[in-house]
Amino acid sequence: MRFLTIVAVLAGLATAVPTPAAETTTAKSCSAVCKNPRVRKEWRSLSISERKQYLNAVVCMTKKPSKAPANLTLGVVSRFDDFNAVHIMSSDGLVQGTGGVHMVGFFLAWHRLFTWSYETALRDECGYTGAQPYWDWRIDADSGVPMAEWEIYNPSHGFGGNGDFVLEQNVTASWPYLAGQTGGGCVNDGPFKDTVMNVGPGSTLTHNPHCLRRGLNPDTIPWLTSARVAIAQAKADFLSYDAAVQGAQDMNPADGIQLFHGSGHYIHGGDSTDFISSSTEPIFYLHHAFLDKLYWEWQMMNPTVRLSEIGGVRIPFHPDSGPVALTDILDMKFAYKSGVEIKKVMNIRNGELCYTYQ
């Protein structure tokens, strides 16, 4: 089943197809070497005060005025909206198979730089002194502990819990709906209880104020276990690894929910289930930081090869649109500086980036 069979979303702005250029050097030849990397830690390893500092910085982003270029006439109000809008703009074309940053060979590289951009804004604009935390959902999925008791959803030093139950609440515009949500309405506790999101769902970029919706879905837990991740981590080459994380080009979209990129979004239900505007959910960045950690660990299993190994298509479902090259440009819109080549983000400690994982 192809994405074209899904109901199409509204047309958005220009898609994030990287600019092809001639292949030249490997990622290891990047000139700058970071000397004081930020250390990203698992959410639970942060002290309570460190968790609150991070949450306060995210709340700050939801209140800080937008810096989006005025000529784009977006419905953004806050800096948090800015990043959400960039993800929406960059994801448009997924359903139609005309572009975007999903189901393409630069998916992992783009989200690596996007997460770094958000982390940098937290530090530069909202006084955050730590690094972007990640959420190792394997720990929770393996634990057998009910979702309502997971630390990530703690109302006082986490992201808050479920929304009120709404029967068959569906905000998914770009991917199949998954039943089993135990909520679906506005989150009713935690730091984002009264937060107003101004763009989304789907490709909506006009002013559309709404609450953060969440509907915890325990049906996704079996897809996030250590055993499921181990299958991907054992893949021998980049194309096989990328397909294990986000899905193959001929994948049935419903099957993609069971791969850990998709299930890591769907587990929260609500706004998180739409791939285009999944960045409405603040846990988005912890999920993608963990995907990045897994990708980095996979790269380090064979760094001689994997720090310069890339490929895949530039446009979803168009085999003639590849292969993605190290010299392709990652388009961050207005979230980050322009002109960053893929080769500069292949190594998280040698090039554009400067961080590591604990």
Rank of each mutant, 00 (worst) to 15 (best):
I6F: 07
P20A: 11
T24Q: 11
T26I: 15
C30M: 12
V33M: 15
K35T: 13
V39S: 01
S45K: 03
S45C: 07
S47P: 04
K52F: 00
K52M: 03
Y54I: 00
V58S: 01
V59I: 07
C60W: 06
M61D: 05
T62E: 04
K63R: 10
V76N: 11
V76Q: 05
S78D: 06
D82F: 02
F83A: 10
S91F: 00
D92E: 14
V95H: 05
Q96K: 09
H102Q: 09
M103D: 13
M103T: 07
V104D: 05
H111G: 07
W116T: 10
Y118P: 07
T120L: 07
A121G: 10
G130D: 08
Q132K: 11
W135E: 06
P146C: 08
P146M: 06
P146K: 06
M147R: 01
E151V: 08
N154C: 03
N154Y: 04
P155E: 00
H157Q: 08
N162V: 09
G163D: 02
G163S: 12
D164F: 11
D164Q: 11
N170I: 01
T172K: 10
T172S: 03
Y177K: 07
A179S: 14
T182Y: 11
V187D: 02
V187R: 02
N188R: 07
D189S: 11
T195I: 03
M197K: 06
N208C: 11
D219L: 14
P222F: 13
W223A: 09
W223H: 14
S226H: 10
R228E: 15
R228G: 09
V229W: 15
Q233S: 13
K235I: 10
A236S: 14
Y241C: 07
Y241W: 15
V245C: 06
Q246I: 08
Q246C: 02
Q246E: 10
G247K: 01
N252A: 04
P253V: 00
L259K: 03
F260G: 01
H261P: 06
S263L: 12
H265L: 05
Y266S: 02
S277V: 15
S278N: 15
S279A: 15
I283N: 14
Y285E: 11
H287A: 11
K293G: 04
V305P: 15
R306Q: 09
R306C: 08
S308P: 12
E309S: 13
G311L: 01
V313N: 00
H318K: 03
D320N: 12
P323Q: 06
A335R: 00
K343C: 13
V345H: 09
I348G: 03
N350R: 15
Q358C: 09
